[in-house]
Design a protein around this nucleic acid. Structure first.
Length: 222
DNA sequence: CCAGACGTTGTT
DNA sequence: GTCTGG
DNA sequence: CCAGACGTTGTT
DNA sequence: GTCTGG
């Protein structure tokens, strides 16, 4: 699955890599330990052009009575998106990219309760896009809260020794297709959610300090 | 029809 | 054991 | 994902 | 909002 990731590239870097404008007001410190419920950098097409937006990680559907769902729906299974009441509607109209440059998976040590955190990136260390879904929820104060979830899929050969799920990373050429509001073909969209090519990825163990969400420092991945 | 759930992961 | 918060 | 709380009453 | 269970 995907419950923790990094985003240390600058907003300017990201904007250039994804060919989008930098919103004037957007500030983002380098992050080495992004956790659910926090605001994350996304790209979505809410009108005519893809835009950088900060969304809260943990989907709160528009019909939710309270925000308790937000800490549960941090992932969505690619295989069942088109069937699940919570996601089907979003697959048609609320797709987004979630920008990252690495993610963590915890590997269960055989014959032990210990888990080793592994850090997984592209070999060229470029920023990439998780496939995501988003929604907007009106809180009791009447404010629209935008939230999102990261789609998971079967692991490739780099991740399968570590874990039985991995986040769906879109190939660069698939990003525009995923964001295209006119694209409604479920099968076509789900085809974009296959595991990223293993030969372009690498994984290595990192410090257990990453376990604590309050610890967010560059030495985690040094 | 209405009422109530709506999710993933991992582990057993 | 299970839920909540980050 | 992991860490940390998990309860009530009353008082400040 | 939409699906499932009764």
């Amino acid at each position: 699955m995907c419950g923790r990731f990094t985003l240390f590239h600058s907003i300017d870097n990201i904007a250039q890599a994804f060919n989008v404008e930098v919103p004037k007001s957007m500030q983002q410190a380098p992050r080495y330990n992004v956790a659910p419920t926090q605001d994350i950098v996304t790209i979505l097409n809410d009108g005519t052009t893809p835009q950088l937006e900060l969304l809260r990680w943990g989907l709160i559907p528009s019909w939710a009575k309270d925000e308790s769902m937000g800490s549960k729906m941090i992932n969505a299974r690619a295989e069942t998106l088109a069937e699940k009441p919570s996601f089907k509607r979003l697959l048609h109209s609320r797709r987004c990219l979630i920008v990252a440059d690495g993610f963590y998976e915890w590997m269960q040590e055989p014959g032990s309760k210990l888990k080793t955190p592994m850090y997984i990136t592209l070999k060229d260390h470029a920023p990439f896009a998780f496939a995501g879904l988003w929604d907007s929820w009106k809180n009791p104060a009447g404010e629209q809260i935008r939230t999102c979830t990261i789609i998971t899929t079967s692991p490739n050969d780099v991740v399968s020794p570590i874990h039985n799920r991995m986040p769906a990373i879109l190939l660069p050429e698939a990003r525009a297709e995923w964001l295209d509001p006119k694209q409604k073909d479920e099968r076509f969209l789900q085809e974009l959610l296959k595991a990223y090519p293993a030969q372009e990825m690498e994984a290595r163990p990192v410090s257990r300090r990453v376990n604590d969400t309050r610890y967010d420092n560059a030495d985690l991945i040094a």
